Computed example of a mutant assay.
Amino acid sequence: MEIEISSCKHLMYVHEIQQEMYDSAQRRGTGIAKRSLEYLSKKISEGNAVVATQNGKWAGFCYIETWSHGQFVANSGLIVSPEFRNGGVATLIKKKVFKLSREKYPDAKIFGLTTGLAVMKINSELGYKPVIYSELTQDEDFWNGCKSCVNYEILMKKERKNCLCTAMLFVPEIHTTKAAEKVQPKNEYNEEKSRLSI
Score class of each variant (00 low, 15 high):
M1I: 05
M1E: 06
E2K: 13
E2N: 14
I3N: 10
I3C: 12
I5S: 08
I5E: 10
I5N: 10
S6H: 09
L11Q: 13
M12I: 15
H15N: 12
H15S: 12
E16P: 15
E16T: 14
I17Q: 08
I17L: 10
I17F: 14
Q19N: 15
D23T: 14
D23Y: 13
D23H: 13
A25L: 13
Q26C: 14
R27Q: 13
R27D: 15
G29T: 08
G29V: 09
I32L: 14
K34V: 14
R35T: 09
E38G: 11
I44S: 12
S45F: 13
G47I: 08
A52M: 09
Q54S: 09
N55L: 12
K57H: 13
A59D: 04
A59I: 04
G60K: 07
F61E: 03
I64R: 06
I64E: 00
E65S: 02
E65G: 01
W67P: 00
W67G: 01
S68V: 00
G70K: 03
Q71W: 07
Q71T: 02
Q71L: 06
Q71H: 04
V73P: 05
V73F: 05
N75Y: 04
S76Y: 05
S76I: 02
G77W: 07
L78T: 00
L78P: 00
I79P: 05
P82R: 01
F84L: 02
F84N: 01
F84S: 01
G87N: 05
G88P: 09
G88M: 03
V89T: 05
K94I: 01
K95T: 06
K95R: 13
K96G: 06
V97Y: 03
L100E: 06
S101C: 11
E103H: 11
E103Y: 10
K104I: 04
K104A: 04
K104H: 03
Y105A: 06
P106F: 07
P106D: 11
A108M: 11
K109R: 05
I110C: 04
G112V: 02
G112R: 08
T115G: 05
L117M: 09
V119I: 04
M120D: 00
K121Y: 05
K121F: 00
K121S: 01
K121C: 01
N123D: 07
L126W: 02
Y128T: 00
K129M: 04
P130Q: 11
P130C: 04
P130W: 09
V131M: 00
Y133D: 02
S134F: 02
E135C: 01
E135L: 03
L136Q: 01
T137Q: 05
Q138C: 03
W143I: 01
N144W: 04
C146H: 06
C149R: 02
V150T: 15
V150G: 15
V150P: 14
N151Q: 12
Y152K: 07
L155E: 14
K158D: 11
C163Q: 10
L164A: 14
L164G: 11
C165H: 08
C165Y: 07
T166S: 12
M168N: 09
M168H: 10
M168E: 11
M168G: 05
L169A: 07
L169V: 07
F170M: 08
P172H: 07
I174H: 12
H175F: 07
T176C: 07
T177R: 11
A179S: 08
A180T: 13
E181L: 08
P185A: 06
K186D: 06
N187T: 13
N187V: 12
N187F: 04
E188A: 12
Y189I: 15
E191D: 06
